[in-house]
Design a protein around this nucleic acid. Structure first.
Lengths: 184, 184
DNA sequence: CTGTCCATGTAAGGCGTTACATGATTGT
DNA sequence: ACAATCATGTAACGCCTTACATGGACAG
């Protein structure tokens, strides 16, 4: 559901091939939604069957032919409907909390190692996020209402990631202290 | 991977049937990991094939027979190994951020509605978390090192959820303000 | 001459959910 | 009378990932 709507969203800007879509995914929403080429191709098939997108073949010289997809009127309607209706909350699903839940089987030192390793990985993700911020600044050039709105929403997804990583970092710092003084 | 290790984790306390496992899942880790009975049964089959758990049939009167699973020595080793090794970070995967990313297609009012709806849902989840806290207090009775450690880790998963919900709530409050004054 | 870009896909499998089937016992 | 609890599973499907296949153009 999310993937197909993301595809509709990108096609609302301009017609694109599956290959193009993979690139824009990686450039703009990869920090909160990743996907694979094969999945995109499959999903495009489904979308076409449902009449939400239409394709046309484009012959090219020196390069493989392209299959370009564009939004149909129904596709645009479906996108707008999906955008406007609040989604049900997905519950937290963090495999690594299972580790924490049963971590009392480990030594305090092992627990602290676990937490520190995660802290380091998280700090690196945060740094990567800053780079996405750079990309947004580059693209932001325009001043039309539409461009300001688009940039604001992009930035919102970034600050969401920022807030979450930062919250977890703080939690980890507190946990590391507590784990050090647990009765063995 | 996570589910099978969660099962091993619970079996490290005592032998249990698939039915029992579903209950302890719902009582203790449902706030960050949900699952279904059918999935548990399937996973138990796999675990038994791999020699990490062993089953025995127990006949009962007036009730359906049980199939009780217990950890084997290999199972215990596998659990301890899995617990001690840091897991790779799973990337953020929030379908609803796709909504936000393309929300510039909506009116400011619609965007604010979206944010407020999520805010309400989130506040309710937070309240539910507080209830889990009550359950922990009940169980905490003992004072042995083992009991203190177990309770501390349980509580840690709770405060993790708390931190995340609270961070998102704060983010939402900021976003609602910004969305109200976006150029249309 | 090695690797990356362009471009489209197939096949297989893992993880997870929903719906369904069965049937006795106990509580309201 | 009706629903919940106890207890185990099967079948079908959805979402997603990994690995694989193909092949020309172009840059180092």
């Amino acid at each position: 559901m999310s993937l197909s709507n993301a595809i509709l969203g990108f096609l609302s800007y301009q017609p694109m091939s599956g290959y193009d879509l993979k690139k824009v995914f990686d450039e703009s929403i990869q920090h909160f939604w990743s996907t694979t080429q094969s999945h995109i191709y499959k999903e495009l098939d489904g979308l076409e069957e449902r009449g939400l997108v239409a394709s046309r073949a484009i012959e090219q010289e020196g390069k493989p032919n392209r299959k370009e997809f564009s939004l149909t009127a129904e596709g645009r309607t479906a996108l707008l409907e999906w955008l406007a209706a609040p989604l049900p909350l997905e519950r937290i699903r963090e495999g690594w909390l299972i580790q924490i839940f049963f971590a009392h089987h480990l030594s305090n030192e092992q627990i602290v190692n676990l937490l520190r390793a995660r802290r380091a990985a998280l700090a690196q993700k945060l740094a990567e996020l800053e780079q996405v911020d750079g990309i947004i600044q580059q693209r932001k050039a325009g001043h039309s209402a539409e461009q300001v709105r688009t940039a604001a929403m992009w930035q919102a997804t970034l600050s969401y990631g920022h807030a979450h990583y930062q919250a977890e970092l703080n939690w980890l710092d507190g946990m590391i202290q507590r784990a050090e003084t647990l009765p063995e």
